[in-house]
């Protein structure tokens, strides 16, 4: 990663996570880890976002919410699943109300492991996502 045209903005939604990964995503934005030095900004509005960061697994109630946010985001967009719950359901896999990883509803581009995922790992994942975003943008441009 050397240069990208646009500052990638992220939107964060908490699926049914335990909060652990959530607060670590927030911690990434704060002075110690500070992803804003890459121009990454956490936005509350899906229409401004390029990267969709989901923590926690998908359950009955939030499928529609997750899909809704995803469809409101402009193309190109990248989905990052943060934490083991977003990857596979993790420790809650066998709970009755948990469907499993985010990939059951959305196409996931980057998986970040960990319970809770460490900020370093999350930043790594987001930087990877930026690469994919650039690639998708190029593909879109070529198609015209």
């Amino acid at each position: 990663m050397s240069y990208f045209k646009k500052s990638p903005w992220i939107i964060h939604y908490d699926g049914s996570s335990c909060n652990g990964c959530d607060i670590e995503v927030l911690a990434c934005l704060t002075p110690m880890y500070d992803v804003e030095r890459f121009g990454i900004v956490n936005t509350g509005n899906p229409k401004h976002a390029d990267i969709f960061v989901i923590t926690g697994s998908v359950n009955e109630q939030n499928i529609e919410v997750v899909k809704n946010i995803y469809h409101q985001m402009p193309n190109p967009k990248v989905v990052v699943a943060v934490g083991i719950c977003a990857t596979s359901g993790g420790v809650f896999r066998e709970c009755y109300n948990v469907m499993g990883g985010v990939d059951k509803v959305l196409p996931v581009d980057v998986y970040v492991p960990g319970c809770a995922a460490r900020p370093e790992a999350i930043i790594d994942g987001i930087v990877k996502a930026i690469g994919i975003l650039e690639k998708k943008r190029k593909e879109m441009d070529e198609k015209g």
């Binding site: 908490d14 699926g15 049914s16 996570s17 335990c18 909060n19 652990g20 990964c21 959530d22 607060i23 926690g56 697994s57 359950n59 109630q61 939030n62 919410v65 420790v91 809650f92 066998e94 709970c95 009755y96 109300n97 948990v98 319970c115 809770a116």
Partner: peptide, 30 residues
């Protein structure tokens, strides 16, 4: 929106093991 049903997991986890599930009730008060 965040309901997982982890209280029901006691049927599947032995009591010394269940403490890991309980810690993940919430990442702040874990």
């Amino acid at each position: 929106y965040l309901h997982r049903g982890l209280e029901k997991l006691v049927d599947k986890r032995e009591f010394p093991e269940y403490v890991y599930v309980i810690e993940r009730t919430c990442g702040i008060c874990s």
